[in-house]
Design a protein around this nucleic acid. Sequence first.
DNA 1: GAGAATCTACCAAACAGATGGTTGGTACTC
DNA 2: GAGTACCAACCATCTGTTTGGTAGATTCTC
Lengths: 208, 208
Amino acid sequence: MATRPKGRTIDRRNREPEILAAAIEVFHKKGYAAASLRDVADIVGVLKGSLYHYISSKEELLARICVESHKQSSMIMQESLDSADTPLDQLRTFLHKTAIWYLTNIERVHIYFNEGKWLTGDRLEEVRTQGREFHAFIRSLIDRARSEDRIRTDVDPRVAAQLIIGALNNISTWYRPDGLYSPEEIAGIYTDMTLASLANPVPGLVSA
Amino acid sequence: MATRPKGRTIDRRNREPEILAAAIEVFHKKGYAAASLRDVADIVGVLKGSLYHYISSKEELLARICVESHKQSSMIMQESLDSADTPLDQLRTFLHKTAIWYLTNIERVHIYFNEGKWLTGDRLEEVRTQGREFHAFIRSLIDRARSEDRIRTDVDPRVAAQLIIGALNNISTWYRPDGLYSPEEIAGIYTDMTLASLANPVPGLVSA
DNA sequence: GAGAATCTACCAAACAGATGGTTGGTACTC
DNA sequence: GAGTACCAACCATCTGTTTGGTAGATTCTC
């Protein structure tokens, strides 16, 4: 009520968001295993021991990043199912939305996809289960599209799904936000090429 | 001259190949940064200090793995150019050969593609240059195929090349030698899907 | 062929530096 | 006076690397 916000900003602020952002940056740049809490603390401008006022362990920091990403990923899956009627259109929407999401949150999502393996115990099981669900989601869309639309039936949906995820997951190794292409352009190319790779083979081209 | 090779084998053998194999295993499993020389030495059955009889540093061990892989990769590029006349057939051969090579040397090649970044100085520059050459090779085949054959011209060859490499490079995260699919099967699917992704778009399918 | 000198492959111990994590205290705000 | 936000110092453990030494094999000399 009678809290009068002083004009002067205080130095003792809540650094939790800063710490998370710094952790994302460091984990992405060095990889979780090689990243040290000192790196994180240096970015925030604090001694590394002080981080433990906000976190309980290095692993918990990683877990928070993964949980946040998983929520967003789940939302995209649901939105994609709601957005269209045919499995092929749902797949198209999903690929495009996911690529945009990946490209605009590249550090966080890279960690979710590639560094979650460093978690242990229940948290490791959880992130593994999430990975399987992600894969199963794509595979089921391919399966359903195969039985309804005209897409190829001569490639195994499991392998196809892995290759599709792989191309996406690997974007973080080459994409630069200040590069030649916008997230929209890349997402468009990714979606087009992926759907084309599932199209019925052009006789003269593919099977030589 | 009068060197008489004793019939009895000695315990003091040359462990260099064992050390390299162990390093490949450990670097692949844990990643270079998180891998320790103790892990390597444990597999060989030797104290970690003893490794320095064979190597000069941990980084040199990584460099040896990368150099070996680069030689093999260069050979595949040359063979692919020699194997066919049209750029599209050369690309097909290259994709298939590379995928087979990747799948049958997955640990070493994964390290070459993904852990070379931990090198420093000249060796880092070298592995970066090699990566650019690998990318440029695919891109040039796409470029030439576009001007001669009937493949799509509506996607950027740079991005296309990155996505194609990405799908390949990511295989190591999901392929298991004891899994359902053989290297030949996966390489076939990869080649087919990749070429299809470059084919002229099927009107009703890709552009909604 | 005997014996000496050398070499190879390794061990045991130690090095400095970094790591994740803990503890006790303190300055500041409310 | 309570609680938040933080510092300074420390801990045990692990890292890559170096050193000094040594058992056994190989090579050289006579």
